[in-house]
Write a protein that binds this DNA or RNA. Structure first.
Lengths: 354, 354
DNA sequence: ATGAAAGCGCTAACAC
DNA sequence: GTGTTAGCGCTTTCAT
C-alpha cells in the first residue's frame, strides 16, 4: 500500500511548530531560530518530505509547466524540437507536458484544451495549419504566453519559423542551375501541413520564375506501411521527371530507396532534394541534397520567447528569414543525364565519392 | 493583460446558485432542475469556463499525469517510445510530462524528484543503469506506480525490455555462420548504458561459445560532432576485423559511412550489424543488418502496466524474452571476402540487390 | 521569532 | 434539488 506522502503539516507536527515556520525554514524565506531550524530540517529529512507542487501552484497560480504540442515524434525534426525545448525549459526550472496532434486538427484542439485546463504557464507548438487553427484561436483568446515553431506567425503569436518559400526558391534555383526542367514536388499529408504547402507554392513560383516547367504535385496520403510501394508506383508513373523535391527528408530518403528499386541511379537518372536536414541524410550514399534547418535552435528559441514573456524579460530576437535555413547541394542532386535508365548498366557506374 | 481565468465561483455567481450545483451540473454528477441546469450551462459558456485541473487534483490527489524519463530524443528509438507512451496515456485520459536525462545520472535523479513533486500518478522510464539507479530507488521507496522500458527489471519494478543478451547471441551466431572470426563491438557511452553493456557481454559470451575470437571492444565517448572522424580513425586502426556489432543502429550507420570513406565495401570488406531496427536502416543501401525491436510496443506496454496498477486492472502480460526482438539478416552482413580492401576496385563491384 | 488563519479551485458529505 | 462547509497542501499576511 502506498502511504500518503508527508505534507507540511506532518513536518510541523514532528518538529513541534506551526506549518508557517516549516514553510519559512524550508524555503529559506523569513527567519527562524537556529534551534527551530534544526528541528524542522531533521523532521523533514526523517519524513522524506518534499513540497507538493500542487498546493504551491494552486496558491501561486503558476505551475512552472509549459505545454508542448507537435504533430509527431516520428519525424526527427520534431523530436529535436521537443528535446531542445525540454532542455531550455529545464534550465529555467520549467517542465514540459507533451502532446502529439498526429496531424489531426481535432486532437490538436483537444490537446490545447487539456493543457490549458492543466494550467500550463505557456505553450510552444507546431500546428497543422496556423492560419486557421482553432487551438491557436483558443490560446490567443486566453491570452496565454505562446510561441509557434516551424509555423509562420499567425493570430499575432510569435513564431520561430523557417522561411519555406525562400528555401523552396533555392531548391528551384539549384535544380535550374543543374539543367533540370521537369520536376515534381512530393508531399506526404499535403492538406494537413501548411509547411508542406508553403514549400510547394514557393517551389512552383520559383520554377516559373526560372523558366522551368510547372512542378508536378505528387501527393501521398498513406503512412509508412506501404510507403515504399506507393512511391515505387508513383515514380514509375512519372519517368519524365528528372528531379524531385520532397516535402521532407524522410520522404526524400524513402523516394531514393524506391527509385533505386526501380533501377534508377541517383542523381544521374533522378535527382532528389529533401527538406529539414536530418542527420540521416548525411549517412546515405550519395548524401541527400536538402534544405538544412536547425530544429534545436527553433525549439530552444520558442521556449525562450515564451519564458521571456512569462518572466518579463526582453523579447529575444527572432532569426532573420535568410538565417533560418541553408541549402545543402551535391550528392543526390546533379545534372540530369540523358538516356534510358537501366538497372544493370547503372550498377557499373562509380559511386559518388563526395 | 491576462485576466484571471474564470473559476467555479464565478460561474455560480453568474448563474445565481451555489458552487456545488455548478460542479454537479458540469460534471453530470448529482441532479439539478432543468432550469438551474440551463442557467449554469449558459453561465459557463458565457464565461468560457473550464475546470482547473489544479483544484481538482489537489482535492482528488490524482493528477491524471504520468512522468516519462528517457535518455534522449535524439535516438529515434526513444522518440518512438515516448510517442507511443503519450498516445497510450492519452487514450486513458492521462498526460505525459517529459524529461530527458541526457545519459546523466544526476539529471535522471533530479528529473525523478521533480516529477514526484509534481505529483505524477505514475512513471515510465528508461534509466541509464537500472541496477543502481538512485532515481529508481526513490521511486521504489515512494511506492509509486512505475514501469521500466528497455531496461531489465530492477528494484522489483516491472519492465518492458529487450533481452539484450539473447539478441546479442543471435548476432554472434549470424557472424559465425557467415564465417567471421575477428569481430568488434562498437559502443557509444558504454559506461552510461546498461543496455550497451548487456549487448556486449552477451555478444562476447556467445562468440566464445561459437569458437570465435573475443570481440574487440571499441568505445567512443564523444557526440555526433566529430563522430565520423573518430569512427574513421578507429576503423583504420582495426583493419583485421571483418565484422562489427554496433550498440545501436545510428552508430552502425555512421560506421558504415566512415568505412566507405576508407574505401571499404560493405559487407565484403566489413560486415556491420546494428541494434534497434530504426527505419533508416532500411533506407540505406545495402540495408542494415540489425536486431529489430519494437519501441512502440514497449512504450505502450509500459504505460499500460502503470495504468493497470493505477486503475486496479489486471496486470498485462510482459512479452516473452524471445518475442522482444527479431534478427534482420542480409544487407550489411555477409561473408568476409579475403583480400585487401581497396576503394577503386571496390567501386566496380555490383551493389547488393537484396 | 513564530503561530493562527485566510484563501487558491475544486469535490463530497451533509444539511435542508 | 440545492446551498453550506470542510478540506486537499501550500504561501502569506497579520498578530503576538
Amino acid at each position: 500500500m502506498r502511504s500518503r506522502p508527508p505534507t507540511i503539516k506532518d513536518v510541523a507536527e514532528q518538529a513541534g511548530c506551526g506549518i508557517a515556520t516549516v514553510s519559512r525554514v524550508l524555503n529559506g524565506t523569513g527567519s527562524a531560530s537556529a534551534d527551530t531550524r534544526r528541528k524542522v530540517l531533521s523532521a523533514a529529512k526523517a519524513l522524506g518530505f518534499e513540497f507538493s507542487a500542487l498546493g504551491r501552484s494552486l496558491q501561486s497560480s503558476s505551475t512552472k509547466t509549459l505545454g508542448c504540442i507537435v504533430p509527431s515524434l516520428a519525424n526527427p525534426v520534431f523530436a529535436e524540437v521537443v528535446q531542445a525545448a525540454q532542455q531550455e525549459a529545464h534550465r529555467e526550472g520549467f517542465q514540459l507536458i507533451l502532446a502529439c496532434s498526429e496531424y489531426d486538427e481535432v486532437l490538436e484542439l483537444q490537446a490545447a484544451r487539456t493543457l490549458i485546463a492543466k494550467q500550463v504557464d505557456g505553450l510552444v507548438l507546431t500546428v497543422n495549419n496556423a492560419a486557421d487553427s482553432e487551438a491557436l484561436e483558443l490560446i490567443r483568446d486566453r491570452n496565454l504566453p505562446c510561441c509557434l515553431v516551424y509555423n509562420r506567425s499567425s493570430f499575432g503569436l510569435p513564431a520561430w519559423a523557417v522561411d519555406n518559400r525562400a528555401a523552396a526558391r533555392e531548391v528551384a534555383r539549384a535544380f535550374h542551375s543543374q539543367g533540370h526542367v521537369q520536376t515534381g514536388f512530393l508531399a506526404l499529408r499535403f492538406h494537413r501541413s501548411d509547411r508542406s504547402r508553403e514549400r510547394y507554392e514557393g517551389f512552383a513560383a520559383a520554377c516559373r520564375e526560372f523558366g522551368m516547367a510547372d512542378p508536378l504535385l505528387l501527393e501521398i496520403e498513406e503512412q509508412d506501411g506501404t510507403l515504399l510501394e506507393l512511391l515505387g508506383t508513383l515514380l514509375a508513373e512519372h519517368q519524365a521527371l528528372t528531379g524531385i523535391f520532397a516535402s521532407n527528408d524522410f520522404l526524400a530518403l524513402a523516394a531514393m530507396k524506391a527509385a533505386r528499386a526501380l533501377g534508377k541511379r541517383i542523381p544521374d537518372d533522378l535527382s532528389l532534394v529533401g527538406f529539414d536536414g536530418i542527420s540521416t541524410g548525411l549517412l546515405v550514399d550519395p548524401h541527400l541534397a536538402t534544405v538544412e534547418t536547425d530544429p534545436r535552435t527553433m525549439g530552444q528559441g520558442a521556449v525562450h520567447s515564451v519564458l521571456a514573456r512569462l518572466l518579463d524579460r526582453p523579447t529575444p530576437d527572432l532569426p532573420s528569414a535568410a538565417a533560418t535555413f541553408s541549402f545543402r547541394a551535391g550528392g543526390s542532386l546533379g545534372p540530369p543525364v540523358p538516356g534510358k535508365a537501366d538497372g544493370r548498366e547503372a550498377a557499373t557506374s562509380l559511386p559518388s565519392n563526395e
